[in-house]
């Protein structure tokens, strides 16, 4: 039940049907990071998938960028309430990366350089729903926005799209990552407005 805010008109009428509840449309690209931006040289960059049995699949930058890549245009939704429509990315689909990975894990912890983590159900990464992106708007992904490469899971709040991702660790049970431990929602569906614990 909401009360009327006396004298509040609001400016943005007829919000786009593409805008999830509680969001507003941003035209710039705000940055949300918990700490300093790491600068990762490409010759030291590495990405791996670690399964629950301890098997590790690793790609260096050259191997990674030689994989088939896709151009995707998606809307993104940050839990801090901005949404940005029609963002253009290039990246490798997680379907491609998991092609030769044997796993029975149902959950994934994404790890980033600098210690950031975030948890995602495995099924949310597959079937064309997620990428490791390394270009934004036709340019190499800027470090501020997670470059050289970040997760891109546009159907969840954007904190799940971990910047500077360097490892996906398969898990049998769901565990909270960095923001999830700090009171944010375990799943984070913007259309259900799952911002915080208890939503």
């Amino acid at each position: 039940m909401s009360i009327i805010s006396r004298g509040f008109g609001g400016r943005r009428r007829d919000p786009s049907p593409d805008l999830p509840p509680g969001q507003y449309q941003a035209h710039d690209f705000p940055v949300l990071s918990a700490g300093p931006t790491p600068r990762i040289p490409l010759d030291r960059w590495q990405f791996s998938i670690l399964t629950e049995t301890g098997e590790e699949h690793t790609w260096d930058w050259k191997q990674f960028t030689a994989l088939p890549a896709e151009d995707v245009t998606v809307d993104i939704h940050c839990v801090t309430k901005w949404s940005k429509f029609g963002t253009g990315w290039k990246g490798v689909s997680l379907d491609t990366l998991f092609e030769d990975v044997e796993t029975a894990g149902d959950y994934v912890m994404a790890h980033s350089v600098g210690g950031y983590t975030t948890n995602v159900p495995f099924e949310d990464l597959l079937d064309g729903k997620a990428w490791i992106a390394y270009e934004y708007d036709g340019e190499p992904l800027h470090p501020e926005h997670g470059g050289p490469a970040r997760l891109l899971i546009p159907h969840l709040y954007f904190w799940k799209s971990a910047k500077w991702v360097d490892r996906l660790r398969m898990m049998h049970e769901d565990e909270p990552g960095f923001w999830e431990n700090a009171g944010y929602h375990m799943y984070g569906d913007p259309w259900q407005e799952q911002r915080y614990h208890g939503d």
């Binding site: 941003a26 710039d28 690209f29 705000p30 940055v31 949300l32 990071s33 918990a34 700490g35 300093p36 790491p38 600098g114 210690g115 800027h142 501020e144 926005h145």
Partner: peptide, 18 residues
């Protein structure tokens, strides 16, 4: 970070676009 602070001890909060 350049001065030698541990990045893990530097907490940031930002507003506005890049």
């Amino acid at each position: 970070v350049a001065l030698g602070h541990d990045p893990a001890k530097v907490r940031t909060e930002r507003f506005g676009g890049a």
